[in-house]
């Protein structure tokens, strides 16, 4: 209960409910909270408990010799040329891959949307979706064999038999070629799947818009440009923003396709951590944890930036 002075000078008494405690607010939903409890415990154990291991970023951790080293691991990390090389490669490979995949997926979605023959449309969709379901190990094996410089390499042997080249081209071992080949393989594998979300958006466009454009005398290309593309733009931005937060996580496609001759253009943070952790006889887990923690911090910054961008563009965040 509180007392306010009314505009005419008289005292007015109004009733204000006392603030409910947390328990009072939860009590009506006890059943729901009980149902949620196992999930909450599971999340704590599976997701948060392992995170306590990040403390080892401040330790030297070799076999069972563990001792506090403060920020020494980070000092070492920032002075390592290979780390910065991997960091730069991570950003380049991930961002170019993201932009390329999104652009090509949008393009294919629009083409598919324009396709009138339903059988043809479904067939093309199925064909381009399939590579997504192959593991990266299989994809790498196929392309390594396909692009090999040995006499088993289909591409080189075909080009030679056509007289286009005399010497085999070492696609996967040449620095200048590795990234383009990587983007190409990634496009082949992932673009089809990437079209799903755009295709869903296209299906939701009001047909009335196309009819109106047609009545206004719009050509097919004009309808794409003035109706389809604007309708897709919001989805494109959302996809870009959501994926931006994950750009540092690239590992598997690089791991199965890189080699020591192209390390300078292919090594990414995750492969760098992998080598330092799993290919060293007695690794320092403290150092590799520090690399991982740094990667997570940069990832968090990207996530916050994405959240901010999402709020500005969509009016709501992603977190």
């Amino acid at each position: 209960m509180s007392t306010n002075k009314a505009s005419n000078g008289t005292q007015e008494t109004t009733w204000v409910a006392p603030k409910k405690t947390l328990w009072d607010r939860m009590k009506p939903y006890t059943g729901f909270y009980l149902m949620f409890l196992p999930v909450f415990i599971f999340v704590l154990i599976v997701y948060y408990w392992p995170m306590l291991g990040v403390r080892y970023a401040f330790y030297s951790y070799k076999l069972r010799d563990i001792h506090w080293v403060g920020l020494a691991n980070f000092a070492k990390l920032f002075s390592e040329k290979e780390f910065w090389m991997a960091f730069q490669n991570t950003l380049i490979l991930s961002i170019v891959k993201l932009l390329l995949n999104t652009f090509v997926a949008v393009l294919i979605s629009i083409f598919l949307n324009e396709m009138v023959n339903l059988f043809c449309k479904k067939f093309v969709q199925t064909v381009i979706y399939l590579p997504h379901f192959m593991s990266w190990a299989v994809v790498a094996a196929i392309f390594t064999l396909f692009l090999s410089t040995s006499s088993t390499g289909f591409v080189n042997e075909t080009l030679k038999s056509w007289g286009w080249i005399e010497q085999s081209i070492d696609f996967l071992h040449t620095k200048a070629l590795w990234r383009p080949i990587f983007y190409m393989i990634d496009l082949w594998k992932e673009t089809g799947w990437g079209t799903v979300i755009f295709f869903a958006t296209l299906s939701g466009i009001d047909p009335g818009l196309y009819e109106a454009a047609e009545i206004d005398g719009a050509t097919r290309l004009q309808k794409i440009w003035y109706v389809t593309v604007p309708a897709l733009s919001n989805t494109v931005i959302i996809v870009l923003i959501l994926n931006l937060a994950k750009v540092l996580n690239i590992f598997e496609p690089v791991f199965v396709l890189y080699n020591t001759r192209v390390l300078e253009v292919s090594d990414v943070i995750s492969t760098y951590i992998y080598r330092k952790t799993f290919l060293t006889a007695i690794p320092d887990y403290g150092y590799t944890t520090a690399v991982g923690l740094f990667k997570s911090l940069v990832g968090m910054v990207l996530m916050l930036a994405s959240d901010y961008a999402s709020k500005r563009i969509r009016g709501r965040g992603i977190m």
């Binding site: 995170m51 306590l52 990040v54 403390r55 330790y59 069972r64 010799d65 563990i66 001792h67 506090w68």
Partner: peptide, 13 residues
């Protein structure tokens, strides 16, 4: 939470 964890026992060492 993490910093608290940093101060936890390292008997595994």
């Amino acid at each position: 939470l993490l910093l608290t964890a940093c101060g936890t026992d390292t008997s595994a060492g």
